[in-house]
């Protein structure tokens, strides 16, 4: 949950949330629509630059988070590159009993392209995630006129997640002190005990939390004061230049 912490302490926290979301989602869309290596590279460059320089995220932290999706990406990319066939029809073929593992140059190129696209996607998502507190993100969704019920649940769930996490952490520490994770079998039992207890606790808390909402006049509508943060002319100009660059890279170069 460290990403959440960084979102409140980023150099870009005070930027307009809608602007950041639009920039990230716009980048995501352009990257997957154009599907070209140079655009992916350009997006990685700009998005990472924003996160590291404007957002002042330590580079080691950023690198650590970029490796999270690594396992999935690696396995999936390998599968995209590799093909199984009865005859050796790839550019490189490995015989396995009665079939061949074939790798074509085309396959490798596709895999690399997908990998880069995924990294570009992650860099755009991270630009937003590492700089936008969740509450503001939810407000952006609210402005997009998502169903009120959904938005309200998101607000509450986000808040409750931290309460439950804190409780779970305390329970886990207590279990560790009592050596509750000794063997795998014991570990499973302890895990389930914590999870079961946490569930009961969360249901009990829900009752009291409703009282607290009602005590302040909650009447089926969750509304908060929001700080207006205008987008600066510089930010707008930068975004326009960035989008123009991507379109030029995508359409007018070969």
């Amino acid at each position: 949950m460290k990403i959440d912490y960084y979102a409140y302490h980023s150099g870009m926290t005070k930027w307009n949330a809608g602007f950041k979301v639009l920039l990230a989602v716009g980048t995501l869309l352009m990257v997957i629509v154009f599907n070209r290596v140079r655009i992916s590279l350009f997006a990685i460059l700009v998005m990472s630059g924003l996160t590291l320089i404007a957002g002042r995220l330590p580079i080691r932290t950023y690198a650590h988070y970029l490796t999270i999706p690594f396992a999935f990406m690696l396995l999936s990319s390998v599968m995209i590159a590799v093909d199984f066939a009865g005859t050796p029809k790839g550019d490189f073929n490995f015989s396995l009993w009665f079939f061949y593992v074939c790798v074509t140059r085309q396959g490798i190129a596709t895999a690399a392209q997908v990998l880069l696209k995924a990294f570009a996607g992650m860099s755009a998502l991270y630009m937003m995630a590492f700089s936008t507190p969740m509450g503001e993100f939810i407000c952006v969704l609210q402005n997009l006129h998502l169903p009120g019920l959904l938005v309200e649940l998101m607000h509450l769930i986000y808040r409750y997640i931290f309460i439950l996490l804190e409780t779970a952490e305390r329970m886990q520490t207590a279990a560790k002190v009592r050596l509750g994770y000794g063997s795998l079998r014991q570990g499973f039992r302890t895990f389930a005990g914590i999870a079961g207890n946490l569930f009961i606790l969360s249901m009990q808390k829900a009752e009291r939390y409703y009282d607290a909402l009602a005590a302040r006049g909650y009447d089926g509508k969750l509304e908060f004061l929001r700080e207006q943060r205008p987008v600066s002319a510089g930010q707008l100009a930068g975004a326009a230049a960035y989008i123009a660059a991507i379109i030029i890279l995508g359409r007018f170069t070969r």
Partner: peptide, 16 residues
């Protein structure tokens, strides 16, 4: 406390 930042939190009652 139900909101995700202090300002929004304190505004909840007055908004209602």
């Amino acid at each position: 406390i139900i909101a995700s930042n202090v300002r929004a939190e304190i505004s909840f009652g007055p908004m209602n």
